[in-house]
């Protein structure tokens, strides 16, 4: 009963926050509502027996996406300069009303279809559970990500790299979107905070990586936590945008794809299929490479920069 009440509260919270996101008074409050929506969503994942997703949603969905949205909002403001924003934030009633009605009809239709769907036997999932011991990891999600559907994960890394490359291609030459320096004077507490939080984010990232084999966690959650530490270093002005990526950054950016592809090809001459894992060590090797690549790519996307360097 209490569990059901919990579900109801989460559901109402999600719907209300979604409404606030689309109807927020201004873009800033809409972004904040969206971030809170992500946090409540991670509670929903926990209720739905998906702790891996709960971690990923909190770290990536709410955390990194929220940081990206907020920093972009700030960049847009800087670019707008003193030009006042013209026009209302939302559309007039005669446009809102029919749109709202159509959306309500869509919700009713979708809800009806979703509830009347027949329950499908989860054949792929059952196979994954049965053959999980062969993988050497006991977290089924890690097993699926790196064993049974490794193609998805490999190509996902490609998408992440492509997103960063695309962002670099469209970035302006004079980089108006570069991170503004910290607006305030150096506060002594900032250094103390960083010396506490950044090592902890590194520790948590490595823990999540190590735990990913047998418990909720993995390269994606760990990478996002590590990226959060990097974002903090950018925000406090410890790191600043460089004109181009250093050699190390270039290597780390492609490390995930390169190691994954490399290990995936190793077993090919032995008659095994492509991306067959030669052992548990390979899974951890790939996860480590993925973690480093994910973390650096996310920080560089946040900084909208080809590379980073220490601010002197």
């Amino acid at each position: 009963m209490i569990a059901l009440a919990m579900d109801a509260i989460i559901a109402i919270g999600l719907v209300w926050l979604a409404l606030r996101t689309v109807r927020g008074a201004n873009v800033f409050s809409a972004i904040i509502m969206f971030i809170v929506f992500g946090l409540i969503m991670s509670l929903a994942w926990a209720r739905l027996h998906a702790p891996d997703l709960a971690l990923a949603e909190a770290a990536i969905g709410a955390g990194i996406t929220g940081a990206l949205l907020l920093v972009t909002w700030r960049r847009l403001q800087v670019l707008e300069g003193s030009v006042p924003q013209v026009g209302a934030e939302t559309r007039s009633l005669w446009l809102t009303l029919p749109t709202g009605l159509a959306a309500a009809l869509l919700i009713a239709g979708l809800g009806w279809v979703a509830l009347s769907l027949p329950a499908e036997p989860a054949t792929a999932g059952e196979l994954a559970w049965q053959r999980l011991p062969e993988m050497g990891v006991s977290n089924p999600v890690t097993g699926v990500l790196l064993g049974f559907r490794a193609y998805d994960t490999l190509l996902e890394m490609g998408v992440l790299l492509a997103a960063w490359l695309g962002a670099q291609v469209v970035a302006s030459e004079h980089r108006p979107g570069a991170l503004p320096g910290p607006a305030h004077e150096e506060v002594p507490l900032v250094g103390a905070l960083l010396s506490l939080v950044v090592p902890i984010s590194l520790l948590v990232a490595v823990y999540l990586l190590q735990a990913g084999g047998s418990a909720p966690g993995g390269a994606f959650q760990g990478g996002a936590v590590l990226a959060a530490g990097g974002v903090l270093l950018c925000l406090t002005g410890r790191l600043e945008a460089a004109d181009q990526a250093s050699l190390i950054e270039r290597v780390v950016l492609i490390l995930g794809l390169a190691v994954f592809s490399g290990v995936g090809l190793v077993m090919l001459p032995l008659g095994e299929p492509m991306l067959a894992m030669p052992g548990v060590w390979a899974i951890y090797l790939i996860e480590t490479a993925l973690l480093l690549s994910i973390a650096l790519t996310l920080v560089l996307l946040f900084a909208a920069a080809p590379g980073l360097r220490r601010r002197l």
Binding site: D52, L53, T65, A163
Partner: peptide, 24 residues
Amino acid sequence: DPVPQAMVLTGIVIAVSATAFALA
């Protein structure tokens, strides 16, 4: 079922990638 969970995990990362590119 671990398969949809893994797919959604992939989806979350793809969503943040696409959002980051759109924001750029």
